[in-house]
Amino acid sequence: MKKKFNLFNWLFDGNPLFSMLLGMCTTLAITTTFENGFVMGLSVTVVLLFSSIIVSLISKYISDELRIPSYIIVIATFVTVLEVLLRKYSIPVYEALGVYLPLITVNCIIMGRVLSFASKNKVGASILDSLKCGIQYTFAIVLLASIREILGNNSLTIIDNLSGLLGFKLSFNIFPSSIFVPSNIFLTSAGAFITLGILLGILNSIRNRGDSK
């Protein structure tokens, strides 16, 4: 029987953020606006993709003791390349991501995927796996960022820091200010933890209901 493609399941099953809680540090810190979340998701995807390709090519030649240090160097190299490129082409984005950009190096998602998948599989499979993982992560981080920005600032910033590259800005308010008063707490660190906690709880209950049917 051919299984019907289900976008919801594809996005949520094995989602690195929602089901395994990997890569939390960057996620919680950066999700204050839609744009930051999206850029971070994209950066992680790009680094993951290139690191997976390299690691799946070289893993045969690396001994077990040197595995983690050498993979970290591969990842750090791509993060450095990304850093240099961002600093050259878009300073505002570089500054918005701040210290969390170099911290992609120690993002558990990348290390986890590289160790558990790319080092054991061929290049083609690794590319597909890292793309899937990257899209799932980007989706999760953008979802969290949108919720936090709407609740905290009643707005959705799609293009602001990137305007230097693209030439236009795009951001709008969601609710009329007469019926909805945004609460700053969602933009603070406490709000990040609480929003993700409640989001995870709701997703779990949806999943449980689906299982019991």
């Binding site: 990040a192 906690g197 449980n208």
Partner: peptide, 23 residues
């Protein structure tokens, strides 16, 4: 605790409250 909130979700919410206090 409600079963869907057991484990990570409730831990995250507790961490959030702790962050409020520390801030």
């Amino acid at each position: 605790i409600i079963s869907s909130f057991k484990g990570y979700p409730i831990a995250l919410i507790a961490a959030g409250i702790m962050a409020l206090i520390f801030s």
